[in-house]
Design a protein around this nucleic acid. Sequence first.
DNA 1: TTGACATATTCCCATATAGGCATATTATTC
DNA 2: GAATAATATGCCTATATGGGAATATGTCAA
Lengths: 118, 118
Amino acid sequence: MARAATTTDAFNAVAEPRRRQILDLLAGGERPVNDLVERLGVAQPQVSKHLRVLREVGLVAVRDEGRQRLYRLTGRPLKPIHDWVKAFEQSWNERFAALDQVLEKLKAEEPDDDGDGK
Amino acid sequence: MARAATTTDAFNAVAEPRRRQILDLLAGGERPVNDLVERLGVAQPQVSKHLRVLREVGLVAVRDEGRQRLYRLTGRPLKPIHDWVKAFEQSWNERFAALDQVLEKLKAEEPDDDGDGK
DNA sequence: TTGACATATTCCCATATAGGCATATTATTC
DNA sequence: GAATAATATGCCTATATGGGAATATGTCAA
Protein backbone atom coordinates (compact mmCIF):
# COMPACT_ATOMS: atom_id res chain seq x y z
CA MET A 1 0.00 0.00 0.00
CA ALA A 2 1.04 3.57 -0.46
CA ARG A 3 0.93 6.29 2.12
CA ALA A 4 -2.53 7.33 3.25
CA ALA A 5 -4.03 10.16 1.25
CA THR A 6 -3.39 13.67 2.48
CA THR A 7 -7.14 14.06 2.64
CA THR A 8 -7.52 11.13 5.01
CA ASP A 9 -7.49 13.25 8.13
CA ALA A 10 -6.05 16.37 9.69
CA PHE A 11 -2.88 14.52 10.68
CA ASN A 12 -2.05 13.87 7.06
CA ALA A 13 -3.30 17.17 5.72
CA VAL A 14 -1.23 19.13 8.20
CA ALA A 15 1.97 17.19 7.65
CA GLU A 16 2.64 19.49 4.73
CA PRO A 17 4.28 22.71 5.94
CA ARG A 18 2.72 24.89 3.26
CA ARG A 19 -0.71 23.86 4.44
CA ARG A 20 0.19 24.77 7.99
CA GLN A 21 1.29 28.16 6.73
CA ILE A 22 -2.05 28.62 5.06
CA LEU A 23 -3.85 27.80 8.27
CA ASP A 24 -1.57 30.19 10.12
CA LEU A 25 -2.56 32.95 7.74
CA LEU A 26 -6.24 32.13 7.92
CA ALA A 27 -6.02 32.29 11.69
CA GLY A 28 -5.77 36.03 11.10
CA GLY A 29 -9.14 36.05 9.42
CA GLU A 30 -10.94 35.29 6.19
CA ARG A 31 -8.84 35.76 3.09
CA PRO A 32 -9.22 35.47 -0.68
CA VAL A 33 -6.96 33.08 -2.55
CA ASN A 34 -4.87 35.78 -4.13
CA ASP A 35 -4.07 37.20 -0.76
CA LEU A 36 -2.65 33.84 0.26
CA VAL A 37 -0.80 33.55 -3.03
CA GLU A 38 0.96 36.84 -2.42
CA ARG A 39 1.79 36.23 1.20
CA LEU A 40 3.09 32.74 0.54
CA GLY A 41 4.94 33.55 -2.66
CA VAL A 42 3.62 30.34 -4.15
CA ALA A 43 2.00 29.86 -7.54
CA GLN A 44 -1.76 30.23 -7.49
CA PRO A 45 -2.59 26.71 -8.68
CA GLN A 46 -0.59 25.15 -5.83
CA VAL A 47 -2.40 27.30 -3.34
CA SER A 48 -5.75 26.25 -4.76
CA LYS A 49 -4.68 22.63 -4.53
CA HIS A 50 -3.62 22.96 -0.92
CA LEU A 51 -6.89 24.69 -0.15
CA ARG A 52 -8.76 21.80 -1.70
CA VAL A 53 -7.04 19.35 0.61
CA LEU A 54 -7.76 21.55 3.60
CA ARG A 55 -11.39 21.84 2.54
CA GLU A 56 -11.73 18.10 2.14
CA VAL A 57 -10.63 17.46 5.70
CA GLY A 58 -12.79 20.28 6.96
CA LEU A 59 -10.02 22.59 8.06
CA VAL A 60 -11.24 25.51 5.99
CA ALA A 61 -14.55 26.69 4.60
CA VAL A 62 -15.27 28.91 1.64
CA ARG A 63 -17.63 31.71 0.93
CA ASP A 64 -18.17 33.30 -2.43
CA GLU A 65 -18.04 37.03 -2.68
CA GLY A 66 -18.20 38.36 -6.18
CA ARG A 67 -15.35 36.96 -8.13
CA GLN A 68 -13.41 36.17 -5.03
CA ARG A 69 -13.59 33.13 -2.83
CA LEU A 70 -12.99 33.88 0.80
CA TYR A 71 -11.46 31.07 2.79
CA ARG A 72 -11.69 30.88 6.53
CA LEU A 73 -10.33 28.63 9.20
CA THR A 74 -12.53 25.91 10.69
CA GLY A 75 -10.04 24.34 13.02
CA ARG A 76 -12.26 21.71 14.58
CA PRO A 77 -10.47 18.79 12.88
CA LEU A 78 -7.31 19.87 14.67
CA LYS A 79 -8.73 18.87 18.01
CA PRO A 80 -7.88 15.17 17.64
CA ILE A 81 -4.28 16.15 17.00
CA HIS A 82 -4.26 18.34 20.05
CA ASP A 83 -5.82 15.68 22.19
CA TRP A 84 -3.46 12.99 21.01
CA VAL A 85 -0.28 14.98 21.36
CA LYS A 86 -1.32 16.48 24.66
CA ALA A 87 -1.16 13.05 26.24
CA PHE A 88 2.57 13.06 25.54
CA GLU A 89 3.19 16.45 27.05
CA GLN A 90 4.97 14.89 30.00
CA SER A 91 7.44 13.21 27.71
CA TRP A 92 9.17 16.49 26.91
CA ASN A 93 8.49 18.17 30.19
CA GLU A 94 11.54 17.96 32.46
CA ARG A 95 9.41 18.04 35.54
CA PHE A 96 7.48 14.96 34.50
CA ALA A 97 10.53 13.31 33.04
CA ALA A 98 12.18 13.51 36.44
CA LEU A 99 9.11 12.01 38.04
CA ASP A 100 9.19 9.19 35.57
CA GLN A 101 12.76 8.45 36.52
CA VAL A 102 11.82 8.25 40.14
CA LEU A 103 9.02 5.87 39.34
CA GLU A 104 11.29 3.73 37.22
CA LYS A 105 13.77 3.58 40.04
CA LEU A 106 11.14 2.54 42.51
CA LYS A 107 10.01 -0.16 40.18
CA ALA A 108 13.55 -1.38 39.81
CA GLU A 109 14.03 -1.53 43.55
CA GLU A 110 11.16 -3.93 44.13
CA PRO A 111 11.50 -6.26 41.21
CA ASP A 112 9.59 -9.17 42.83
CA ASP A 113 6.77 -7.07 44.14
CA ASP A 114 3.48 -8.55 43.02
CA GLY A 115 1.74 -5.29 43.66
CA ASP A 116 -0.15 -6.54 46.68
CA GLY A 117 2.04 -4.62 49.07
CA LYS A 118 1.04 -6.51 52.27
CA MET B 1 8.14 16.86 -6.17
CA ALA B 2 6.69 14.05 -4.16
CA ARG B 3 5.43 14.22 -0.64
CA ALA B 4 8.03 14.97 1.99
CA ALA B 5 9.67 11.92 3.51
CA THR B 6 8.05 10.47 6.59
CA THR B 7 11.37 10.98 8.31
CA THR B 8 11.35 14.70 7.62
CA ASP B 9 9.86 15.63 10.96
CA ALA B 10 7.46 14.50 13.64
CA PHE B 11 4.50 15.91 11.71
CA ASN B 12 5.14 13.51 8.87
CA ALA B 13 6.20 10.58 11.00
CA VAL B 14 3.11 10.79 13.13
CA ALA B 15 0.68 11.11 10.24
CA GLU B 16 0.72 7.33 10.04
CA PRO B 17 -1.75 5.85 12.55
CA ARG B 18 0.29 2.72 13.17
CA ARG B 19 3.17 4.86 14.32
CA ARG B 20 0.93 6.73 16.68
CA GLN B 21 -0.19 3.41 18.09
CA ILE B 22 3.40 2.45 18.66
CA LEU B 23 4.02 5.66 20.53
CA ASP B 24 0.88 5.09 22.57
CA LEU B 25 2.19 1.69 23.59
CA LEU B 26 5.64 2.99 24.40
CA ALA B 27 4.06 5.63 26.59
CA GLY B 28 3.43 2.74 28.93
CA GLY B 29 7.13 2.04 29.17
CA GLU B 30 10.06 0.46 27.42
CA ARG B 31 9.15 -2.51 25.24
CA PRO B 32 10.92 -5.04 23.01
CA VAL B 33 9.91 -5.25 19.37
CA ASN B 34 8.10 -8.54 19.72
CA ASP B 35 5.92 -7.12 22.41
CA LEU B 36 4.80 -4.42 20.01
CA VAL B 37 4.33 -6.96 17.25
CA GLU B 38 1.95 -8.96 19.42
CA ARG B 39 0.00 -6.03 20.73
CA LEU B 40 -0.38 -4.46 17.31
CA GLY B 41 -1.07 -7.65 15.43
CA VAL B 42 1.21 -6.44 12.66
CA ALA B 43 3.98 -8.35 10.92
CA GLN B 44 7.35 -7.93 12.58
CA PRO B 45 9.14 -6.38 9.58
CA GLN B 46 6.56 -3.61 9.35
CA VAL B 47 6.95 -2.85 13.01
CA SER B 48 10.71 -2.64 12.64
CA LYS B 49 10.28 -0.30 9.71
CA HIS B 50 7.94 1.96 11.63
CA LEU B 51 10.36 1.97 14.52
CA ARG B 52 13.11 3.03 12.16
CA VAL B 53 11.12 6.02 11.04
CA LEU B 54 10.34 6.93 14.63
CA ARG B 55 13.98 6.58 15.53
CA GLU B 56 15.09 8.78 12.66
CA VAL B 57 12.90 11.64 13.81
CA GLY B 58 13.98 11.11 17.40
CA LEU B 59 10.65 9.95 18.76
CA VAL B 60 12.03 6.73 20.17
CA ALA B 61 15.36 5.49 21.44
CA VAL B 62 16.72 1.97 21.66
CA ARG B 63 18.68 0.04 24.21
CA ASP B 64 20.14 -3.39 23.66
CA GLU B 65 19.48 -6.02 26.23
CA GLY B 66 20.64 -9.44 25.27
CA ARG B 67 19.03 -10.43 22.06
CA GLN B 68 16.24 -8.00 22.56
CA ARG B 69 16.10 -4.34 21.64
CA LEU B 70 14.13 -2.27 24.05
CA TYR B 71 12.46 0.77 22.55
CA ARG B 72 11.36 3.69 24.61
CA LEU B 73 9.52 6.92 23.99
CA THR B 74 11.46 10.17 23.60
CA GLY B 75 8.61 12.49 22.86
CA ARG B 76 10.52 15.73 22.59
CA PRO B 77 9.99 16.06 18.84
CA LEU B 78 6.25 16.15 19.52
CA LYS B 79 6.53 19.51 21.18
CA PRO B 80 6.50 21.50 17.92
CA ILE B 81 3.27 19.78 17.00
CA HIS B 82 1.80 20.59 20.35
CA ASP B 83 2.91 24.18 20.15
CA TRP B 84 1.62 24.65 16.65
CA VAL B 85 -1.76 23.08 17.19
CA LYS B 86 -2.24 24.72 20.56
CA ALA B 87 -2.37 28.09 18.85
CA PHE B 88 -5.54 26.95 17.13
CA GLU B 89 -7.23 25.77 20.27
CA GLN B 90 -9.63 28.68 20.15
CA SER B 91 -10.80 27.67 16.72
CA TRP B 92 -12.68 24.67 18.07
CA ASN B 93 -13.52 26.15 21.42
CA GLU B 94 -17.05 27.54 21.42
CA ARG B 95 -16.19 30.14 23.97
CA PHE B 96 -13.50 31.65 21.83
CA ALA B 97 -15.47 31.16 18.65
CA ALA B 98 -18.21 33.33 20.12
CA LEU B 99 -15.67 35.97 21.03
CA ASP B 100 -14.34 35.92 17.51
CA GLN B 101 -17.81 36.54 16.18
CA VAL B 102 -18.18 39.54 18.40
CA LEU B 103 -14.88 40.91 17.24
CA GLU B 104 -15.78 40.34 13.61
CA LYS B 105 -19.02 42.16 14.15
CA LEU B 106 -17.29 45.10 15.75
CA LYS B 107 -14.91 45.27 12.85
CA ALA B 108 -17.80 45.22 10.41
CA GLU B 109 -19.50 48.07 12.23
CA GLU B 110 -16.63 50.47 11.76
CA PRO B 111 -15.61 49.75 8.20
CA ASP B 112 -14.03 53.16 7.56
CA ASP B 113 -12.11 53.33 10.78
CA ASP B 114 -8.49 54.06 10.03
CA GLY B 115 -7.46 52.79 13.40
CA ASP B 116 -6.54 56.21 14.71
CA GLY B 117 -9.57 56.42 16.90
CA LYS B 118 -9.37 60.17 17.61
C1' DT C 1 -20.40 40.17 -26.44
C1' DT C 2 -15.84 40.94 -25.29
C1' DG C 3 -12.30 41.36 -22.15
C1' DA C 4 -10.07 41.22 -17.74
C1' DC C 5 -9.76 39.34 -13.30
C1' DA C 6 -10.02 35.39 -9.80
C1' DT C 7 -9.84 30.70 -8.98
C1' DA C 8 -10.00 25.72 -10.13
C1' DT C 9 -8.71 21.73 -12.79
C1' DT C 10 -5.85 18.83 -15.72
C1' DC C 11 -1.66 16.70 -17.34
C1' DC C 12 3.15 15.44 -16.61
C1' DC C 13 6.82 13.56 -13.68
C1' DA C 14 10.12 12.19 -10.00
C1' DT C 15 9.79 10.34 -5.74
C1' DA C 16 8.56 7.80 -1.64
C1' DT C 17 5.52 5.31 0.59
C1' DA C 18 3.38 0.79 3.37
C1' DG C 19 2.65 -3.75 3.19
C1' DG C 20 3.88 -8.68 1.79
C1' DC C 21 7.48 -11.78 1.66
C1' DA C 22 12.15 -13.58 1.79
C1' DT C 23 16.37 -13.17 3.75
C1' DA C 24 20.28 -11.04 6.26
C1' DT C 25 22.18 -9.85 10.78
C1' DT C 26 23.16 -10.27 15.55
C1' DA C 27 23.02 -12.49 19.99
C1' DT C 28 22.25 -16.64 22.88
C1' DT C 29 22.36 -21.20 24.30
C1' DC C 30 23.58 -26.01 23.84
C1' DG D 1 30.17 -24.52 15.98
C1' DA D 2 25.23 -25.40 15.10
C1' DA D 3 20.61 -24.42 16.01
C1' DT D 4 17.53 -20.93 17.52
C1' DA D 5 15.58 -16.64 18.90
C1' DA D 6 15.02 -11.53 18.04
C1' DT D 7 15.30 -8.00 14.95
C1' DA D 8 16.61 -5.54 10.66
C1' DT D 9 16.96 -5.04 5.76
C1' DG D 10 16.05 -5.78 0.82
C1' DC D 11 13.03 -6.32 -3.02
C1' DC D 12 8.50 -5.71 -5.20
C1' DT D 13 4.21 -3.20 -6.40
C1' DA D 14 0.25 -0.02 -6.36
C1' DT D 15 -0.64 4.35 -5.25
C1' DA D 16 -0.52 9.25 -4.34
C1' DT D 17 2.03 13.12 -3.92
C1' DG D 18 3.58 18.33 -4.91
C1' DG D 19 5.32 21.30 -8.12
C1' DG D 20 5.34 23.28 -12.92
C1' DA D 21 2.83 24.72 -16.82
C1' DA D 22 -1.24 25.18 -19.51
C1' DT D 23 -5.87 25.67 -19.60
C1' DA D 24 -10.69 25.56 -18.01
C1' DT D 25 -14.40 27.75 -15.36
C1' DG D 26 -16.70 31.56 -13.36
C1' DT D 27 -17.71 36.41 -12.51
C1' DC D 28 -17.86 41.13 -13.17
C1' DA D 29 -17.46 45.44 -16.14
C1' DA D 30 -17.73 48.18 -20.33
